[in-house]
Simulated scan of single mutants.
Amino acid sequence: MKYLMRIVLAAIALLVFMVRNAFSENLVKKTIKLPTQKKFRPFNLLFIADVHRRIIKAESLNFPIDIIIIGGDLVERGVPLERVANNIKLLSAYAPVYFVWGNNDREVDETSLRKIFDYYGVIVMDDISVPLFGNDQLRLVGLDHFAYKPNGFENAFRDVKKQDTVIFVSHTPFDFWKVKAPYSADLLLAGHTHGGQIRIGPFGMFRKGAIEWKRNRVELISNGFGTTTLHLRLGAPAEFHLLTITHSIDARE
């Protein structure tokens, strides 16, 4: 009986730990240098993905922000639109907000969601690229992966030139391998996988979120800020990212 009680208490403690992990607010800070021919002023980029049912708190954003990118799954079925509007209102008070669609976002009424975005000036990245800070050679490219458009990549990169410094965002990291000639990007951002969400040591359904410096680009896959269905985390705590983006001069033609 004594050992059974210990097992029960250990199970309860683990469950509480997993719930706390699911609702934690881990801010990951990194400085990233991107190659460019045209210098730009360093800026702070807040990347947050997979909010799902969570409420974003003002006290979690007590630092300078120049641009905010929402990497999809801001919402899911059953989440009140009022909560979404409050999250967007809070974020848009800090900096311009850009959004890509995730697989759960269209579980709510898309028209109503777009009205919220329009009201708060959120730019929806529907297979488009936009210049940042008035610099035509510094571009954000957003892909609406879950619209399943055969020409999505072509439209997204249509206005991108070879010499441009490119930040690419899609909800799913499974698009990263597609960003190759004739397309290219210097920083790639995604969420979707929740870092496996529940991991046993090194093992999980998906790879744990990470920032990886590769030969010619940087790839960030976030564990995500929220959860869906099972609001537990183990080995892949909730996170969002503050990236200080600066430049290094390269010899692009």
Rank of each mutant, 00 (worst) to 15 (best):
M1D: 12
Y3M: 03
L9Y: 09
L9F: 07
L15V: 06
F17Q: 11
A22M: 06
A22W: 01
F23T: 14
E25D: 13
V28L: 04
I32L: 08
I32E: 05
L34M: 03
Q37D: 14
F40L: 13
L45Y: 02
L46I: 11
D50Q: 05
R53M: 12
R54S: 10
I55P: 13
I55Q: 13
K57P: 13
N62E: 13
I65G: 10
I65P: 04
I68P: 05
G71N: 12
D73A: 07
D73H: 07
L74Y: 05
E76D: 09
E76S: 07
R77G: 14
R77D: 13
G78C: 10
K89Y: 01
P96T: 07
P96I: 11
V97G: 14
F99S: 02
E107C: 03
V108T: 06
V108Y: 03
S112G: 04
L113A: 03
R114H: 00
Y120N: 01
S129Y: 01
S129G: 03
P131N: 03
P131R: 04
N135H: 04
L140G: 00
V141G: 00
V141T: 02
G142P: 01
D144L: 05
H145A: 15
H145W: 12
H145E: 10
Y148A: 08
P150L: 10
N151C: 11
F153Q: 01
F153P: 08
F153R: 07
E154R: 02
R158V: 03
K162S: 06
T165A: 15
V166F: 01
F168N: 00
F176E: 06
W177E: 15
W177M: 15
K178D: 08
K178I: 08
K180Y: 06
P182C: 03
A185T: 09
D186S: 06
L188S: 02
L188C: 09
L188Y: 07
T193A: 13
H194Y: 13
G195M: 04
G196N: 07
I198G: 11
G201K: 05
G204N: 12
F206L: 15
R207P: 10
G209H: 00
A210S: 13
I211F: 02
N216H: 09
I221R: 15
F225E: 00
G226M: 13
L232M: 11
G235H: 11
G235I: 15
F240C: 06
H241L: 00
L242G: 11
H247I: 15
D250G: 10
E253G: 15
E253A: 15
